[in-house]
Design a protein around this nucleic acid. Structure first.
Lengths: 337, 337
DNA sequence: CCGAAGGGTGTTATCGCTAACATCATCGGT
DNA sequence: ACCGATGATGTTAGCGATAACACCCTTCGG
């Protein structure tokens, strides 16, 4: 009879089959230079024959290092954070790292601290926190030093390692695009004030207006939902002097578009609109929405790079990185009537 | 001077401080019964004082078990799969498991097999595959037995352990709701034919019609996007005999609503519409959408439970579970004019 | 022709934990 | 008063890898 549960082959099994010591197998696995080519091939063949796979736990035990990256993210399906997470998982996977996701219901101090602790229990090599608003950023103050940690979408005014989309640049471009079309000024429907993305977009919008000496209208603050964009639109659509609106994301723009259309204000003929995010549906809005596309893949890669620098060097020469977004021009912008 | 990098405290450090052997510390950690209460307290105090945390790698090495669950999911931000994943991460976290996500660009055989292999390299305790269409389900045939594996949203006709929303029941309810409002029949805009969710909803819709002897109109097949819902709507809105439409998801319904409104067909006065998913925006559509809400949290919990049964028992008594969704009634359904 | 340098390989210790067994009181039953 | 059962604890042996060092055998400069 067979052994009851034939255990997985270990390094010594490979070594025996290849006629070498287990240390040589280890060397082959880790690409050490001092192994004869012929030996290397023999070991490789044995590995393949046995279907051997290295035991990560054993390796982690002796090296003290893990190939795991912990991510802390909110339990939400907002397009931006969800895309970021997904892109990061892909990037990390390609680099040979596993990603352990710790979801958090609320972005408060306590929840985030708990999630970070869970990751430290797992002895992750590094932690990424998606901290898009101020309460999340505050919570990071509690995190003890010593764990490589990168914040994504976090507070640009803090000194922690950070990667983020250049919100201000994107907003600047969007606003300038509207001004260049001939509009006197541009109104802005903003996301929640405590979100850094929203704040950065307000800043870029304001700078673009100031750069050409345009009047700066009051900010209309909303949340990120289409519903609140609709409510903002109900107000703005009553104001004939509003000919151009920059919305802090595409869902707001969607709500706005609907409100405008209900009031009989045509887009882009009467009012021009620009969004932010380039959600997959944006090209199918009515009219197709001109918007700003962040490169989540680039953010993910920068984040990973920054984290790995910290893991190996202890810190990084460039601990803050910013990824420029791109204006995507569709049919929701035209010169004023 | 201090030691250069004072290493993390290990079990023996705790043991020394508490004046016991490391094995006793281990027993306290694992809640073994045979430890005197007083000793237990002393050990706990020592653990706290040193800030000791068990080394999972060492534990995994000796037990051969890991507290990690691997998930294979597509790199998409579709509402259903994204919500499911998020809910699962939360549920697993609460149960003390870490979740490692392996993203896959396409749901083809090769990508899925590669993602599964990466997880096996990590020696995960079990694997969850979100396999919502037939190519993903096919790929699972390649997965060697011996790894606990649960499919979510997968092929109901296969014998593999599976958890899924009861699509047919939800669709049956949605359709019946429209019929009970007095409509002669109900049209259906379906998701992609190779998606099990879409197929299940078609089935439920058909059964509801047949149950009352209503005529079964041809299925309008689309993808999951608002754009394709809009195209379907352009066609259906021209047909005066269409008074009720069940859409396979809310985004399709959104597109349909817009097409109907452009043609001057009022919802729900002229046409009633029901969606599926209950996306967060659904309550703010115009009109607020009656839809079917799947309980992703329940799916996640069932999935976890089923997986853990397999991990401990090798298999499960009830390897297929189904979670009933709930009809959410809003303002998009009325009796025919 | 010899010793140093270095490539290729093996041997041994070690990481931090759990499993298995050993040890020693304590205790109740006869 | 003796004995086995049971509870509380300690001791020892791995788990499967890497690190550090030891040991050959070439090769090459003087």
């Amino acid at each position: 009879m067979d052994q009851k549960t034939t255990r997985d082959p270990a390094m010594t099994d490979v070594a025996r089959l290849a006629g070498v010591s287990h240390q040589t197998v280890s060397r082959v696995l880790n690409d050490h230079p001092n192994v004869r080519e012929q030996t290397r091939l023999r070991v490789r063949a044995a590995i393949k024959e046995l279907g051997y796979r290295p035991n990560r736990a054993a390796r982690a035990l002796v090296t003290g290092r893990t190939q795991l990256i912990g991510v802390v993210a909110q339990n939400s399906t907002l397009y931006g954070p969800a895309s970021l997470l997904s892109a990061f998982e892909e990037a990390a996977g390609e680099a040979g790292f596993a990603v352990s996701v710790g979801r958090v219901k609320e972005l408060d101090r306590e929840s985030i601290a708990a999630a970070v602790e869970r990751h430290r229990d797992q002895r992750v090599a590094g932690i990424v926190v998606i901290a898009p608003n101020s309460s999340a950023a505050d919570a990071l103050a509690d995190v003890p030093a010593g764990v490589p940690l990168v914040t994504v979408d976090g507070d640009p005014s803090r000194p922690t390692p950070l990667v983020t989309v250049d919100q201000a640049a994107g907003a600047f471009d969007a606003t300038s695009h509207l001004l260049e079309a001939g509009h006197q000024t541009v109104w802005h429907v903003s996301g929640p004030a405590d979100w850094f993305d929203a704040a950065g977009r307000v800043e870029g919008w304001r700078k673009a207006l100031e750069a050409v000496g345009a009047e700066v209208p009051p900010v209309v603050t909303a949340d990120w939902s289409a519903a609140s964009g609709y409510r903002a639109g109900q107000m703005l659509s009553r104001m004939p002097e509003v000919t151009a609106v920059f919305c802090s994301n595409d869902h707001l723009a969607l709500g706005l578009l609907r409100a405008l259309s209900e009031r009989g204000r045509r887009v882009p003929h009467d009012v021009s609109v620009v969004g932010f995010d380039d959600v997959p549906e944006a090209a199918y809005f009515i009219p197709p929405l001109t918007t700003v596309r962040p490169d989540f893949g680039a953010v993910a890669r920068e984040t990973l790079g920054l984290l790995l620098e910290q893991v190996s060097d202890g810190e990084s020469a460039r601990p803050r990185r910013t990824v420029a977004p791109m204006l995507v021009s569709r049919d929701s912008v035209a010169p004023p009537a």
